[in-house]
Design a protein around this nucleic acid. Structure first.
Length: 154
DNA sequence: GCCAACGTTGGC
DNA sequence: GCCAACGTTGGC
């Protein structure tokens, strides 16, 4: 089983939205590296951290979720009214994929990006490295577990 | 809102 | 295949 960190802007889709929806499609990925990870590595039952990006002081990890469905063609790429249509993608050979995720937990507090940056334990995480723009990235089991543990400390 | 750091596109 | 121009991401 693998562990992931997945980013979403809370203005667009937040942990509270997922809590309400229970299971939702993680769509809108338009990055080949992330698409390939979804296609080749993300499996049902994998665990992921839900990360709020572009959220000012509240930027950080806010909860956990579980992969509920493996990669399948992202329907929003063919919907010209969606936020991320791709006119060049062919339904016969879809360019973009998505997965389904299931709500698991919402943390009592946000583990902020600055908190992660200030802890040497997390220094090797892709997330804290400069210039990182991946919206989905693999993390270590130990990193996942430590962040969950931190969420219980006030 | 600014801008650094990327990724993508397209002309050559 | 190179690279300049352009678009996007995301922290601040």
């Amino acid at each position: 089983m693998k562990y992931w960190l997945m980013k979403s802007e809370p203005d667009c889709y937040s942990i509270d939205d997922l809590k309400k929806d229970k299971v939702e499609m993680w769509d809108g990925v338009r990055n080949y590296q992330v698409r390939n990870m979804m296609r080749d590595e993300i499996k049902v039952g994998d665990l992921a951290l839900f990360y709020h990006s572009n959220a000012g002081k509240e930027t950080g990890v806010v909860g956990t979720m579980k992969v509920a469905k493996e990669a399948y063609p992202d329907p929003t790429q063919f919907d010209m009214k969606s936020d991320h249509p791709d006119p060049k993608s062919n339904p016969e050979n879809p360019r973009w994929l998505c997965v389904d995720v299931k709500f698991q937990s919402k943390f009592d507090r946000t583990i902020t990006l600055s908190e992660l940056k200030n802890d040497p334990f997390f220094a090797s995480m892709t997330l804290v490295q400069k210039g990182n723009r991946l919206s989905v990235m693999p993390i270590k089991k130990s990193e996942f577990n430590k962040i969950v543990k931190l969420s219980h400390n006030k």
